[in-house]
Design a protein around this nucleic acid. Sequence first.
DNA 1: GACACGCTGAAAAATGTTTTCCATTGTCGA
DNA 2: TCGACAATGGAAAACATTTTTCAGCGTGTC
Lengths: 305, 305
Amino acid sequence: MLKPKEANSLESRIQSHYAELPPAERRLADLLLGFPGDIATYSASELAEMAGTSNAAATRFFRRLGYKDFSEARRMVRGARSWGSPVYLSAPEDRVRQNSKTVAAHIARETNNVSRTLEALRPDILREAADALIAAKRVFVAGFRNSSVLALYLYRQLSIIRDGVVLVPSVGQTLGEDLAGLNGDDVVVVLGFRRRVAMVETLISVAKRRGAKVLLVADSSATAMPKKPDWSLLCEVRSESPFDSYTAAMSVLNLLCAATFRAGMPTSFERLRDVEALHDELEELDTVNWIASVGMGETDAEDAS
Amino acid sequence: MLKPKEANSLESRIQSHYAELPPAERRLADLLLGFPGDIATYSASELAEMAGTSNAAATRFFRRLGYKDFSEARRMVRGARSWGSPVYLSAPEDRVRQNSKTVAAHIARETNNVSRTLEALRPDILREAADALIAAKRVFVAGFRNSSVLALYLYRQLSIIRDGVVLVPSVGQTLGEDLAGLNGDDVVVVLGFRRRVAMVETLISVAKRRGAKVLLVADSSATAMPKKPDWSLLCEVRSESPFDSYTAAMSVLNLLCAATFRAGMPTSFERLRDVEALHDELEELDTVNWIASVGMGETDAEDAS
DNA sequence: GACACGCTGAAAAATGTTTTCCATTGTCGA
DNA sequence: TCGACAATGGAAAACATTTTTCAGCGTGTC
């Protein structure tokens, strides 16, 4: 096993030692991995307290991670941030070098996309949309091409919160069948990201004509569309690569789900438990079938590693 | 000496006292105005040294600015950061207020998740994985439950870059059929996020036994799995809400696609154009059908809610 | 059960940081 | 030149944090 104990980030150190961490230190690891904010601004004792353990554990933790002491860890974390990303400069090789440049650019772009998108988002619109998603009789979630991925995500999460969520277009159905009986009690969520098909506009028109409310989640090019939805949430999708990035969109959808969940609070909570339990049962069943079909049966099954 | 000003930022305090600062303290002021943000991660002595003055001066400086002592200053700077969100505080209403707090917390968490995840990611692993995705005879992309959303995304993007990409499990197929003939020339990408079904491990075992390479994209809880994939890309998924956030995962996948695209450069580029053109044609056709099936033509067709 | 082992937090010891005190320096006006 | 004054940094004192030590605890093994 390789221990490239050199100049790797705190995160990667935690990950590579995660398996061998005792409980108290693992709590610290979990805390740090999920920490919103700059770790370097906290003292070891504060971190220990937040993780619900003693500061002795904190000392041992950082040492086990390969730092000389806590202050070395702090220095390195601090360094990593202001440097941009010195991630893995151990290999002075050229391709690797260039590669990590690319990664650094990606980091900058993506964090920027996310924070700009979220800061531009209007909480009042979010709230209205969330309320509407709870109040609606049915919710249709529509997305074409790449947006279908996001539609699928939103559909799955909303289905946890409430009944009557429909994914559009669904397999083996025409859009007409999918939208049967659409009316003023319904809400249509349209994921309308770049490279929109004409269908997106059509869909919005039809929905509005039938009196349904429309929530559009899209990139900023959607502002040019003639048909206006009731609410829009705009997401930055530009990327360093030729592939649009739906990172910010994902974040907005997560936030939308959270807001909707909160809006439907008394009901939602129980439902969440129900659905999770149900899923667990169903997935178990599936698992058995799959194992059978792959032919796991007899194997003692060893591989090296 | 009226000082009704309380919770103003470090910057504004410096500004309003700037005129009356003695030289040594002014150097400190200049230093601090110069790098916004990270101040809380430094000790007073460090700041003093950077400003080329004594730490006695630092003490006097922070006191003159109206802080009780240095640690109060540090606390406030740190607080301002996590509180920081100029987002729409126009409405002093209560619900809106609370809502925008939530949004602020979401912003902090999400940007943090993304940058941490990307910083922890090892460029060398990314590169190897990307090369393998190009070199493989076939690429299987597998994801269950929520991970199926990400699998769909990756499948779509990889399909643009190369032939022979297979989404698993596919509708109406057993996993056994999906994986028919899996062998050492193939690569399996497993999206294995939290609430993993047992199938994930099984799949990895089977793939490795057959000699295929395995790339795992998952949250950090996957480090505890006994079966080790050839490469892992770990993503932070924790969120302020009960719903896991796949924002960082999305970003990693986008990066993976970009890297893969670059790895397959000469071929990929032409293919990208082809596929886009093809898509456009197909989608156009679809659109026509859909419009027909929804019945756009004449209807004014109204019902009241 | 007895032992070895590693994990744990409390508290002592070591180390580091901030504040206070004070001697020195430079400036200004008489 | 002198005295008054403010600014300054060095160093000791006061304070805070980190590290080490140590005894207790639980787990697994013989």
